[in-house]
């Protein structure tokens, strides 16, 4: 059974179509990266799944339960909004134990124990008695993740979970999300492609409210990423440029970029093109200092699809 099922989901705000017949199935236990440019409809989708907004058309289910305000699906979900908000007069520990835990129906002792566990997990155990009003953005983001995990959710909805975090915080949170793989289904929207590349199994790319691609990350990289070879010669830039010009006419060479004695060659993607290029480099009579097949990046895929 899919953890998240979205069928024909549409959302219209006045003249703006935020979501246009979105169909999506997310399998249980995966870390799903939901990508798209600003205004593509990522946050709208998450808000509908969290039961905070209603779709104009279509429906969605979480673990087989229909989503919406008042839905029982909320018992199974942890939700971290893009900018998590808290009561500034509350203390972090109190917020998790006395409010969030209790709203999920935990007993007082169970909520307190889980809150303590979560504070340690997100690195806020030292400040559990401090008022949230004095927290930095990064601390609020960590607390936001802690509250989303309080109920041991089957589905975790994360809207830009590492925005506002410093590099260490980002690494910690990404590691934490990574550890949830298999235990919970993580549905995460983000702009940071390297994060998606690092932890997501499956990727969906949204543009103008439409899902334009959905596949496992590795398949996507294979399908869309452009093969690039970077060669560094021990020769003058003029000599390298002269050699590179001789490649332009070849049918498998898509593009050539020069940077001093380094040449960056974009190939058409066929296996033979890499073999042919390798022979051409060796036959150039120039000393090769470096020869590197660049790994395809998700950024290339993203830019190719929505750029």
């Amino acid at each position: 059974m899919s953890a998240i099922v979205i069928e024909g989901l549409g959302k219209i705000y006045g003249p703006v179509t935020a979501l246009d017949s979105l169909d999506l199935h997310v399998e249980q236990g995966v870390v799903f990266g939901f990508l798209g440019p600003n205004g593509a409809g990522k946050t709208t989708t998450l808000r509908i799944l969290a039961g905070l907004a209603r779709p104009t058309t279509g429906r969605a289910w979480i673990e087989g339960l229909p989503v919406g305000p008042g839905s029982h699906a909320r018992q199974l979900v942890g939700y971290l909004p893009e900018e998590p908000s808290f009561y500034p007069w509350m203390r972090a520990g109190e917020f998790l134990a006395d409010l969030v835990g209790r709203l999920y129906g935990m007993s007082r002792s169970e909520a307190k124990a889980r809150a303590d566990e979560m504070l340690v997990l997100v690195g806020l155990e030292e400040v559990d008695e401090r008022r949230i009003g004095g927290f930095s953005r990064g601390m609020r983001q960590r607390l936001g993740l802690a509250q989303a995990l309080m109920n041991r959710p089957q589905v975790l909805l994360l809207d830009e979970p590492v925005s506002g975090l410093d590099p260490v915080g980002r690494r910690d949170i990404l590691n934490l999300i990574d550890e949830l793989r298999g235990e919970a289904t993580v549905f995460m929207s983000t702009h940071i492609l390297s994060d998606v590349e690092r932890i997501c199994d499956t990727v969906g790319i949204l543009d103008y409210g439409r899902l334009i691609v959905l596949d496992e990350k590795e398949n996507l990289l294979r399908r869309y990423a452009v093969p690039v070879v970077e060669v560094n010669f021990d020769a003058t830039p003029e000599t390298v440029a002269h050699w590179a010009e001789s490649l332009r006419e070849l049918p498998f060479v898509v593009n050539i970029q020069l940077d001093g004695s380094t040449v960056r060659i974009t190939l058409d993607g066929s296996v033979q093109s890499s073999v042919d290029l390798q022979q051409l480099v060796l036959g150039s009579d120039l000393l090769v200092l470096g020869y590197q097949h660049e790994h395809p990046q998700l950024e290339d895929v993203f830019l190719q699809l929505v750029g």
Partner: peptide, 15 residues
């Protein structure tokens, strides 16, 4: 406006 209503109402609590 502050977003706390969304935070609370995404939990299993009725309006």
């Amino acid at each position: 406006n502050s977003g706390t209503a969304a935070m609370i109402l995404s939990k299993p609590v009725s309006r």
